[in-house]
Design a protein around this nucleic acid. Structure first.
Lengths: 343, 343
DNA sequence: TTGTAAGCGTTATCAA
DNA sequence: TTGATAACGCTTACAA
């Protein structure tokens, strides 16, 4: 690239490099007239400081790194949005990387970001212990790390996520309150968060005096859309042909719930009459589905915003190891639409 | 961060800094035993080169910048995936930024990325002329830019997108071939791409000897889900209560089409019996919608992959201004499902 | 085969 | 108020 450098400005104006540097940084050491000359010349020639050089020198980059497992879903997009909005406000830039649910890739993301000299890390870790030693190491070495979404990770730092237990509990309670008693919970087979959600579901049943039938906990392979489709179809067919037929379903993820709705339509089951459906989902068009989908929504924008806020708290302090850390579990937002309300 | 530097390695091993540097870069100038000592020490102490310093020195960062208008939709996620997969193969890293359909923000993204020393730029521009001068300027100054998706932009360089005209043409033809003649096209009111899609639709009508009724071109405000929902509801109600009722709809974007399906269900119109529906969409669960949605799909992964490939072509050449540029319009993928096939 | 030294574009210390 | 100069961590002629 061909942006002008301070050296060239110095030469053109017949002043020293350091004078230019100071002038550009609005140092009080520099006289007003000189400052003005420099600033005007810089402006006129579209001077842009070379960030690499600046960062190399100062050790600060005003950039943070964000690692998430995947950006391919509305929940993540919304978190990213929240992070970026906050970053914009505080004048930071953001580099996103995807770990693809793979600890190896996650490690390489972390290392890359460090090498690039980011000032801090926001991460939604692959699992409870992924790269724990590495993260502890860098966090201890004066490099701030904040965890979002997957807050069950063991690193001791700020963590921002959602009260999954409560979300699932309230959704299940809603189903029970609407007269459903035979409630199925469909979760992914791999992800840790489903655990809390399952617990909430389970507790709601218990509190209502409903015995949990372990046939009613379905764990799906989420590898891809086709596999999921087949698994759901099989599961529903099996459940609905058993003697103890369910009358409601709680979906533990966006993909599961939306796909489920399609499967039920295809199999000819009416929602909510035969089966009420509610699920964790952050899609924008939940109300446009057929039927309009009842959702447990995560305040994704706020998660991103708060994660960024906590990270900035670290970055701002000189010795931030004294900062009082805490885990924040935001409330989910339940919206009851047609799919779970008896018509 | 506290990664060790070559200076420290040099001191520890009692060799010079340049020896270490050369050894790490596997230079032939360095003896095997020395090389081995250095490599082992580096390995043992987790040496990681400081990329900022490396980049500052070499002027190459092995990083490319990607600017897209928004990452909040499946099409973009898939493009990103394609870019990242290719980047991984060629050992490059990727920084993503969002322009949010705003030329000002776009400009700042471009500048930021340049300052960060990326080796090239992949951009899906806000509109035909957004930041054209700036882009031309940097592209001319030996900094490669490749355009993807929004290929109607005026910059002269490689462009990779989709044949929107053809996609819309074939989809419309499909509707006509299935016996529909009164076909509505719903487009967004703002985006340039809708233009080509409308033209394809229009041409298909013409070729089939069907007169275009301009009541049948609906332009929607896509500002947010609620607004769109209302606009669609009004449009459908109006259309279906007119004397010349439509019998099919072509949706020109993901959001429009999926939302439309919900609206039709809510208003009680049966798809495809009363209204056939087909639309541009890259959602994974099109087949899980109710009814399964016929789609014109863009090969997003391939777009990302090819865009990256073209950019690498530039980056690889010393004097790449001789490279023969071209615009690639990939074919869309039409999948006919229940929503457009008379049962 | 190894080392010296200059330089990438900045900032920062210390003299002038 | 300004200017040499060293330094950040690395690469690379060029010398030894």
């Amino acid at each position: 690239m061909s942006s002008i450098t301070i050296k060239e400005i110095a030469k053109a104006l017949n002043v020293s490099i350091s004078t230019v540097s100071k002038a550009l940084n609005d140092s009080h050491e520099i006289g007003e007239k000189t400052k003005k000359r420099v600033l005007e010349y810089a402006e006129a020639h579209h001077y842009k400081p070379n960030l690499l050089a600046q960062n190399l020198k100062t050790g600060k980059s005003n950039t943070i790194g964000v690692i998430l497992t995947s950006i391919n879903n509305p929940f993540c997009s919304q978190i990213i949005e929240g992070i970026q909005q906050h970053a914009l406000k505080v004048g930071f830039e953001v580099i996103f990387m995807q770990s693809r649910e793979n600890p190896e890739i996650e490690r390489s993301c972390i290392e890359t970001l460090m090498q690039r000299g980011v000032d801090g890390l926001l991460i939604s870790p692959v699992d409870e212990t992924s790269n724990q030693k590495l993260l502890e190491d860098i966090h201890d070495h004066n490099f701030p790390v904040v965890i979002f979404d997957r807050i069950q990770h063991n690193l001791e730092t700020f963590k921002i996520g959602v009260n999954n237990f409560q979300g699932a509990y309230l959704a299940t309670k809603h189903l029970i309150d609407s007269g459903r008693t035979k409630i199925v919970n469909i979760t992914a087979s791999r992800f840790g968060l489903s655990g809390e959600r399952f617990k909430g579901y389970h507790q709601a049943l218990t509190d209502a005096g409903i015995a949990f039938d372990d046939q009613f906990h379905i764990q799906c392979n989420m590898q891809n859309q086709e596999v999921l489709d087949v698994e759901l179809k099989n599961a529903i067919t099996r459940l609905m042909s058993a003697e103890n037929k369910p009358d409601a379903i709680l979906g533990s993820s966006d993909t599961i719930t939306v796909t489920l709705l399609g499967v039920l339509a295809e199999l000819g089951y009416s929602v909510p009459d035969e089966l009420a459906v509610i699920g964790f989902s952050n899609i924008d068009f939940a109300r446009s589905l057929n039927p309009a989908l009842s959702t447990i929504r995560q305040p994704a924008l706020e998660i991103g915003d708060m994660a960024m806020e906590k990270l900035m708290k670290f970055i701002a302090k000189k010795n931030w190891h004294q900062v009082q850390i805490e885990t924040t579990e935001l409330d989910t937002i339940l919206t009851f639409r047609k799919s779970s309300i008896q018509s």
